[in-house]
Design a protein around this nucleic acid. Structure first.
Length: 852
RNA sequence: GGGGCGAUGGCGGAAUUGGUAGACGCGUCGGUCUUAGGAACCGAUAGAGCAAUCUGUGAAGGUUCGAGUCCUUUUCGCCCUACCA
């Protein structure tokens, strides 16, 4: 037997697949389609283990669907705009385009080395003008539909990356990429009107049956629909302010109001802009609320105005108006009424500023001891102290009733409020898709005509400037539109726009007239299975859903409402972390004899501090380079390992031993294959003898095929790895059995090779070829008749406890089983002194005797 | 604070509709072959006990002939989200 040389064999099959266009997408209208898509990578230069896991999962599924005779669309592309390219280019004095394309070249080689069944003819790259030209067209379409607008707004400004961030990109007050503390700045910005679709984005989540519940809940919370009402408060104390509008979900607690609080950014703050004390207060507010701890513990701060608000339900009740640090301008109307008894924040505030606490909801009607101390009561109960609202059940009766009264009196109305905000898409960056808008001499917005698209980025420009490099491109900015000299917009689009429609482009990747062809879309969309990291649960997935809806809006040709029919979110790849003197060490700088104590490889006397296992990241140096693993163990072994140890949706722990075991499995399987070939497939060896009671391999093969098929359908890929081990164990045990039915064995072994092919495509191809099989194969059909043995094991329980197992014929009668059980040697003793009170018999499975 | 998910041997994890708990792998132990092995192969491996047997799926109750699985309470862990009115 020759050792399995994965280096030669894997290369051989990758070349074969390449040369024969093996994975080229085919459309045969007689077959069903399957669109399998994994989230495309940012071309950082090298693939990482997260990619390996993501793309292996997708590849197993694609290959399985192909074997089941689907037309499979399994494309790959590059999310190639973004800041790393710009930063790298600036540091090394390169062009971002060259840096990016070089990275794409390298990563493509690495992906091919994994043996992925990708149709590379459909490769796309978002930084290519062939791609972003269509994106600019879509921008103009959306502009025409009124879904794009420009407004001056406070933005999250990242001082390190010198760019604007979307709310979603600010994590704990820090930029998601740079980690710098985000500042607030007022700028003119472009927005997508995503909130126009708030209801649809929320309601259509219901349609997504094949999405993880977790993701749907996260999106639901992000959209944040709440039912309540808006209220108008009459203001006195300053003639410049007549009214203040508030949003509330608890109008029924209005009689408990003891103050009004408004945001420091509320229009009313204009009156105080020359007030030094107020400016000081505002500054103090901006300082809190950036880090997670300060948000959690932030003290409630207020600034008392000379304004007085009247309770709309009783004009005689007057309350003070405060600016408060916990009121946000961009939710509701930037103003609230404070009801300390029934809202914890309001209570904290009231206690600090000695404001009244008027309880208006008590848990039980006759609860005379009910008092509020330092904990607000937010539970259900009965309204009291509230005049005509008294005795209503809160909240189910009291809220609608109050709204009814407020509407009648025309001082409030029912209102649904969303947490979701419009999507700010402007970025002050070079390496992104230019916005196809210009400004004329009057600074009016002028659309760039479609025949002038694409607006290409200028190349080889100086990036070492402050702010947006495009701003410095005087010549590039000049454009003539309808004989008018105009200046181009220099903001570029958020890269999340690029990834909001790439799945559509894959359907028509080379169409240079349109972003996609509607016939292609109608055939391929929606994506049947989308696979990627859960970190995109909100941002990317919500934006893609919006973009699809926006394209379909006022468009009779394009009817798609949801882009991704099925979604699967895989877990992360983790590794232990190592530290020496507070510096991170990479796994290959560390050695261990026993898996407990770790030492520095260069100097084994130095003990290393073992940290927790965390998601692989460059910053913690706990990464394993897939390229090195493929080099050492082969692609099949890496694929096998990355699927083996944990369910795909959970985090997986990298293990060197596990990796080696996977490699050994490939080697062992090849050894087994060679023996099987020798013993059964070389003609000279076959001596067909008639033997009684031949061992039939059909049963095992069909049972394991059945299991693996089910596990493939349900993403239990780690269990499939166990199933492949079972296959090896079974065949290596029976291969020497003299009673084998040779013909049946051969047929079944060929089936086995097909079954392993989605996970181990190179090994399977090599084994099949070795036995003279064509490389065009199908997924074997389960033969139901073999799924159940004629001989069945029935479990015998006595009083619910397992006491034995008897082997018997299928479909035995209850009476026969009872007889059999009673006469089984090991069980006799249980029956001798007791009588059977009752028994429960589940056919072909179990019998439970209740003895007295 | 709000929401979600989870808890099974030394470890990662298996276990249709409630029906043989611990598949499969790692590790460990024993053996074979070896000058040696950290290679390969074979065997054992939930715990306790010589054994029959008993105990076991975070904890406590409940439903049931029967519960890892269903219900109630509770503890712990992880993730998401956050002054959202």
């Amino acid at each position: 037997m020759n050792r399995y040389n994965f280096k030669i064999i894997e290369k051989k099959w990758q070349n074969y697949w390449d040369k024969n266009n093996f994975f080229k997408t085919k459309i045969d209208k007689n077959k069903k389609k399957f669109y399998c898509l994994e989230m495309f990578p940012y071309p950082s230069g090298k693939i990482h283990m997260g990619h390996v896991r993501n793309y292996t999962i997708g590849d197993v599924l694609s290959r399985y669907k192909s074997l089941n005779d689907y037309n499979v669309l399994h494309p790959m592309g590059w999310d190639s705009f973004g800041m790393p390219a710009e930063n790298a280019a600036r540091q090394n004095n390169l062009d971002p385009k060259d840096w990016t394309n070089e990275n794409i070249k390298n990563m493509k080689i690495q992906l091919k080395e994994l043996g992925l069944s990708i149709d590379w003819d459909r490769e796309i790259s978002t930084c290519s003008p062939d791609y972003y030209k269509h994106q600019q067209e879509f921008f103009l379409d959306l502009f025409d539909k009124g879904l794009v607008y420009r407004k001056e707004n406070y933005v999250n400004w990242d001082p390190v990356d010198q760019t604007v961030l979307a709310n979603e990109q600010v994590i704990n007050g820090k930029g998601w990429r740079s980690g710098a503390t985000v500042e607030r700045k007022k700028l003119n910005q472009w927005f997508f009107n995503i909130t126009k679709f708030s209801n649809e984005l929320l309601d259509d989540l219901e349609k997504l049956k094949n999405w993880p519940n977790k993701v749907k809940i996260m999106q639901k919370n992000w959209i944040g629909k709440s039912y309540g009402c808006e209220l108008v408060f009459e203001i006195s104390g300053n003639p410049k302010v007549q009214k203040i509008r508030c949003f509330t979900t608890r109008p029924d607690t209005l009689f408990g109001m003891s103050f009004l609080a408004i945001s420091v950014d509320h229009p009313v703050s204009e009156l105080y802009k020359n007030d030094k004390e107020f400016e000081k207060f505002k500054l103090a507010c901006s300082k809190t609320g950036t880090t997670e701890e300060s948000i959690a513990q932030a003290e409630k701060l207020g600034f008392k105005t000379d304004l007085i608000a009247a309770n709309p339900l009783n004009e005689k009740i007057k309350v003070p108006v405060y600016f408060a640090n916990f009121v946000l301008m961009d939710y509701g109307f930037g103003a609230i009424f404070g009801c300390p008894a029934h809202d914890q924040r309001d209570l904290d505030f009231a206690l600090k500023y000695n404001l009244k606490v008027n309880p208006v909801v008590k848990p039980k009607k006759d609860d005379s001891n009910f008092k509020i101390k330092d904990e607000a009561y937010t539970g259900p109960g009965i309204i009291f102290n509230s005049n005509f609202l008294d005795n209503l059940k809160a909240p189910e009766e009291s809220i609608p009733k109050t709204i009814e009264i407020l509407e009648k009196k025309k001082i409030g109305k029912k209102k649904i409020n969303f947490r979701l905000k419009d999507w700010g898409i402007s970025r002050q960056r070079y390496w992104g898709c230019p916005i196809p808008i210009a400004y004329n001499s009057k600074n009016e917005i002028v659309k760039v005509p479609k025949d002038k698209l694409p607006i290409k980025l200028p190349e080889k420009i100086n990036l070492n400037v402050n702010g947006n490099p495009l701003d410095h491109q005087k010549e590039w900015k000049k454009i003539t539109i309808k004989n008018e000299e105009c200046t181009l917009e220099t903001d570029t689009l958020d890269t999340f726009v690029d990834s909001s429609w790439y799945f559509l482009r894959f359907c028509s990747p080379t169409n240079n007239k349109k972003g996609f062809d509607i016939d292609d879309i109608n055939y391929w969309m929606p994506v049947d299975q989308y696979i990627g990291g859960v970190e995109h649960a909100i941002l990317h997935l919500l934006y893609s859903r919006f973009f699809t809806k926006a394209l379909a809006f006022k468009n009779d040709n394009f009817k798609l409402s949801e882009p991704f029919n099925g979604l699967f979110t895989q877990g992360m790849v983790c590794h232990e972390t190592y530290k020496l003197n507070n510096n991170w060490l990479s796994p290959d700088e560390v050695i261990s004899d026993n898996g407990k104590d770790y030492f520095l490889r260069k100097d084994p006397k130095q003990k290393i501090k073992l940290g927790p296992s965390e998601s692989m990241s460059k910053s913690k140096k706990n990464t394993i380079d897939p390229a090195v693993m493929i080099q050492n163990y082969g692609a099949d072994a890496v694929r096998f390992f990355i699927l083996s140890d944990s369910p795909p949706e959970k985090d997986v722990q990298w293990s060197d031993q596990g990796m080696q075991a996977s490699h050994k499995f490939i080697q062992k399987f090849w050894g087994l294959h060679c023996e099987i070939k020798n013993n059964f497939f070389s003609s000279s060896k076959i001596e067909e003898k008639i033997i009684e009671n031949k061992l039939d391999v059909n049963v095992f093969t069909n049972q394991i095929l059945h299991k693996i098929t089910q596990n493939l359908e349900s993403f239990h890929y780690n269990v499939i790895v166990a199933n492949l081990h079972e296959i090896y164990n079974y065949f290596s045990k029976i291969k020497a059995n003299k009673n084998l039915d040779v013909e049946s064995f051969k047929i079944n072994y060929l089936k086995i090779l097909k079954i392993i092919s989605p996970i181990l495509p190179h090994l399977a191809s090599e084994c099949l070829e070795d036995l003279g099989q064509s490389s065009k194969i199908d997924w074997p059909i389960v033969e139901e008749k073999y799924l159940k043995n004629d001989k069945i094991n029935i479990v015998i329980q006595i009083n619910g406890k397992k006491r034995g197992v008897v082997e018997c014929e299928k479909d035995m009668d209850e009476a026969d089983i009872i007889n059999l059980a009673k006469n089984t040697a090991d069980l006799k003793k249980y029956f001798s002194n007791s009588e059977i009170k009752k028994n429960i018999y589940v056919k072909d499975k179990i019998i439970n005797f209740i003895l007295k």
